[in-house]
Design a protein around this nucleic acid. Sequence first.
RNA 1: GCCAAGGUGGCAGAGUCCGGCCGAACGCAGCGGCCUGCAGAGCCGCCUACCGCCGGUUCAAAUCCGGCCCUUGGCUCCA
Length: 497
Amino acid sequence: MTLHVTNTLTGEKEPFEPRDPESVLLYYCGLTVSDPPHLGHARSWVHVDVMHRWLEYLGYDVRHVENFTDINEKIVARVGEDDLGEDELDVAETYIERTLADMRSLNLLRAEVYPRVSEHVPEIIDLVETLVEEGYAYESNGSVYFDVTSFEEYGKLSNQELDEIESQGDPDERSEKRHPADFALWKAGAVDESAVEEHRHEGVDHGGDPPAGETWESPWGEGRPGWHIECSAMSMTHLDETLDIHVGGRDLVFPHHENEVAQSEAATGQAFANYWLHCELFQMDDEKMSSSLGNFVTVDDAVDQWGTNVLRTFLTAGSYNSKQLYSDETIAEAEERWDRLERAYEAAVEAVDSPDARTKVEDASFREEIETARDAFVAAMNDDFNTREAQSALLSVATAINAHLEDRAEYDYRGLRDAVEALEELGDVLGLSFAGETTGTADLAGDVVDLVLEVREREREAGNYERADDLRDELQALGIEVQDTDDGATYRLPSGE
RNA sequence: GCCAAGGUGGCAGAGUCCGGCCGAACGCAGCGGCCUGCAGAGCCGCCUACCGCCGGUUCAAAUCCGGCCCUUGGCUCCA
């Protein structure tokens, strides 16, 4: 069985065949770093991360590149705000650091490189020059625009006809353009002050004159790169002219990705990306979550509140390419799913490590259930990274473990060990970690809880159930879940600790 | 208006590409039983789905074809 992916370019689910059978070139359209990342970004990151992990699981060498857009009016608009930075690149760097920290907290595999636009201006200028030379772009008042009519296939990614496409860019640009859909590859002059003004946060004192954005010298005079050209230049620089997979948010299909295709393919004469994958957006009540609507939860806050595993369970609870509802209910449900997995895992580990497990009981149907679940997981992931189905498979391992452990004095050691390994290995594909995030304080907390439970056990033995229940309630109030079992009480610390 | 995605049980969400294993997965909520001093967790079982509407193709359709209704996203910065 091979991996199939849904390709936006063709609108169909196709078998995945990389150019080189051993490796995959994966490019992800990264962030414009003008605000703290929110859960919507995290959703895309996690799905790209899962793709990365699954491709590695299949044996590919994954070359993963993810850019940071550090040149943008919205970034300039933050200059002088709080202590973000003194100029455009300074502010960008502040947000890049935060973004990388958020990524770490989400347990994301690192990309090979995180290129920044500001460091690739020479490559961008080269690419624009090529396009001008080849007749795909023209200069106008010191700006350079891509001539959409020169690229026959313009519109093929978003499946639109040229005369149906409304104009792009701000009104001032329009007079400089030959066709309303032409887009800027290079913008003359300094940063657009009205755009900066528009993106300023209200009621914030930036102090002093309007900040200046970066500018660079070019064959067309001083200016700044256009928005779309950066991804083409950076992916070609760090990967190749043709990518295997290009991933991004659904909201970027038009105009951003459409323009990337046009300028890249016009310049190289080759396919820019063989597979275009698009991550769908969060749905909050009746609208999407987005920076511009301001209805977002930051990654930082979400990790603090839910912990990495719960969050990743939530973020992979739907397919990457279908919309997902964000609400207290849906995230709470994900927490239940994760808890169920973790409890089963812990119970299995405990059983495997117990003396009873040594007895050679063989439970054929138990072992078969684990195998079936593994197969189901692989099939689900190969079917366009169906993470929801993959979770189902994981949960069925949990159910098998619980059922095996139920009413049984002797355990199937090998079966349990296989189950534990399946959870660890397959969970890792989703970036879920059963290792337990133990820290010095968590260990100490554990010792203290043990102590309290010991006291409680004595009360129970003495028949003082009321006092025993009080202790349990007190622990519960602290988020510590106590469970009485035949072998004494066990507990779980709150997730995220 | 144009382009795209989607409408499946109380919620959420797979399945639709390649029609029959779907009398519809997994989970949450709810109900019953077991277990338990009690609770939780767990196990076993139940529950709720004419798969948006209408028509067609077929021995057979949630799945294919046609029409209609509705929702969401893109067409302006956006993961």
